[in-house]
């Protein structure tokens, strides 16, 4: 292993011009991997890896969190991915609701949530649909299957977001980024062409990277190599094809359509979210339960998750980091989620 790492270091040195380079990763698994492998220790000091809005829990807006929590108190069964249960809302969290006796269940896959609904027809099961293109196809599949099988007690609260428009918002708002480490799992579904606008409109390149230490280092090499002539390339070729997974794309498109979405830190971004198409509206929890997003405070006092998500500051530059905000008592979602950059910095002592 050390040999491959040394080879990557040599290549980085070869293409390193010495000028300050910021490379942003926009996938929670990359954020964790970089900290866990200690990759910042390997890179020369002028090359900085900064974390962007890649953690699904972190970018979920505060009022969406609060709406999910208040839905739990309406007597429905909340089905959710693990991380979300711990995120603090305005005055509760899903795990606190569960402790009060509300039915909050953690599922690894939305298909398990649908199975649970089918096995428990007396319960009204609402799946909280968060996440990017990695999770969206499987949620689409549950809606389609529920429709086909005429399941009446399952619905999805759709809070899904898609990556390209958020990247554009970051670039337009002037984040100083010279290259993107593009998400491997998301791109396995979407393909890599969705990022072409970064080069065409903004002259910034990116590399779709895998998740091993060598994947990430080689992707950095590819970004450095193309700095003068930016490109969108795929390093993670063993999984990602340029055209992506067309079957999954078709499924997503059949069930969902584009909508506007609010991101924590980035605000409302046009066309960056999804909503459930009219054909499947009976599976849209927002309509079924008339969910109104409350007027939540937009930011938690002192918490700079928003600036962390935009890559404007590193977690350590937040005044609450490691003091008022720790994984044990998280203030903001970037510390709660196992994919959050604050959690990564704290856990691995960066």
């Amino acid at each position: 292993m050390q040999g491959i790492i040394n080879r990557a270091k040599e290549l980085i040195d070869r293409y390193n011009t010495g000028e300050s380079i910021k490379i942003m990763e926009v996938c929670g698994s990359h954020t964790m991997a970089i900290s866990k492998y200690g990759l910042r220790q390997i890179l020369p000091p002028n090359i900085k890896l900064i974390s962007g809005p890649g953690c699904p829990v972190c970018v979920t807006a505060q009022n969406e969190i609060d709406a999910s929590i208040s839905l739990a108190s309406q007597g429905v069964t909340i089905a959710t991915f693990g991380d979300l249960v711990r995120v603090p809302g305005n005055d509760s969290s899903l795990q606190e609701e569960r402790a009060k006796g509300k039915d909050v269940r953690v599922f690894y896959s939305p298909l398990d949530a649908l199975d649970y609904a089918m096995a428990n027809p007396s319960k009204e099961v609402v799946f909280i649909g968060i996440g990017f293109e990695t999770t969206i196809p499987s949620v689409a599949m549950t809606i389609k299957e529920a429709y086909t099988k005429k399941i009446k007690n399952y619905s999805v609260y759709c809070l899904h977001k898609t990556m390209p428009k958020a990247l554009e918002a970051l670039v337009v708002n002037g984040s100083d980024i010279q290259g993107f480490l593009l998400p491997g799992h998301v791109s396995a579904i979407t393909g890599s062409t969705i990022y072409n606008f970064l080069v065409d409109k903004y002259n910034i390149g990116g590399v779709v990277s895998g998740f091993e230490a060598t994947d990430i280092l080689m992707s950095v090499v590819m970004i450095l190599k193309n700095l003068k002539d930016p490109k969108i390339e795929i390093q993670y070729k063993r999984v990602v094809k340029e055209e992506g997974n067309t079957e999954a794309q078709r499924l997503m498109d059949e069930v969902f359509e584009e909508s506007d979405a609010e991101w924590r830190g980035l605000g409302m971004i046009e066309g960056s979210g999804l909503k459930i198409r009219e054909k499947y509206s009976e599976y849209d929890a927002e309509k079924k339960f008339n969910i109104k997003k409350p007027n939540s405070r937009t930011e938690i006092k002192g918490c700079r998750c928003g600036d962390v998500l935009k890559g404007l500051i590193t977690p350590k530059q937040c005044p609450l980091f490691g003091k008022a905000c720790t994984p044990l008592n998280p203030v903001g979602p970037c510390m709660v989620s196992s994919e959050g950059s604050c959690a990564a910095y704290y856990k691995y002592g960066e």
Partner: peptide, 27 residues
Amino acid sequence: GLVTIDTIYGTNRIVDRPIGELLPRIC
């Protein structure tokens, strides 16, 4: 005074201390 790990990549970091429930990640 720290619990650290020498990684297979030749780097060194803090060992992550577990907090509560083990929850699978999303992405």
